[in-house]
Nucleic acid binder design. Sequence first.
DNA 1: CCCTTGGGTAAGCATAGACTTACCGTAAGT
DNA 2: ACTTACGGTAAGTCTATGCTTACCCAAGGG
Lengths: 128, 128
Amino acid sequence: MTYAQGPEKASAGPPGRPVADQPLAAAAVFAALGDPTRREVFERVAARPQSVGELAGELPVSRPAVSQHLRVLKDAGLVSDGPAGTRRIYRMNPQGLDHLRAYLDHFWNQSLAAFKTAAEQPPKESRK
Amino acid sequence: MTYAQGPEKASAGPPGRPVADQPLAAAAVFAALGDPTRREVFERVAARPQSVGELAGELPVSRPAVSQHLRVLKDAGLVSDGPAGTRRIYRMNPQGLDHLRAYLDHFWNQSLAAFKTAAEQPPKESRK
DNA sequence: CCCTTGGGTAAGCATAGACTTACCGTAAGT
DNA sequence: ACTTACGGTAAGTCTATGCTTACCCAAGGG
């Protein structure tokens, strides 16, 4: 992280928040799931819808930290939430994983194509 | 990131390097692809096998930076390399994406299960 | 109506890690 | 062999971000 401003795709102007671009979505998912704690939060929510406090009680981080992680996950389309009385229940949202799937398939095909190309040309030093 | 040492699964002792655990692999892939520059490097390599210098020439970062990114990608099983004369050609390695796919499928099924469970119980306020 | 419970937000700190420049191997070309 | 090209590694800098505590708002229950 840290630097990284060069080749990012910057959809258009500077909107207040990213909305729902297709290629950007995958980026958000990777960024969100890249953090171990956040991935842990996601996995627990995916296993069973839970409230923030419930999650915080089982994790080694504070409740605000969990709340912040959930916000990132939500922005990435990985979880959704809804009020349940005074609580707020977070559940998994398959949409985020959908973007991942799309990204995955894209490169899967590329890998096959590259493989085929490499198979056609004898692997004797491609080009020195 | 930064903190994050709590709920990580820590396979066994402290090996010099992680080898090839299944659940850890997905984590490595997410961590690797979480960085925008590194994702860019990966995408370029996936599109066409290239040398380090070639990549560095097209990217806004220095050659050592690219080299370091490639190392991370390689450790995550996302790229593989081989010598070609004085150069070193990096190409995409589908194995890393395989781990991603496995992770994906796992949670996809979970989402379906949760969905079905939710559908059985009338969605009238889950539990107040 | 208070009071309790649950959770989002603000402000601030500390560190992981993405960069840089400098240096040193190793393989080819002449 | 010398020289050049290519790349990996070392050391050090700087910032994005994950964490904390403190504060505040909203929804129920008595």
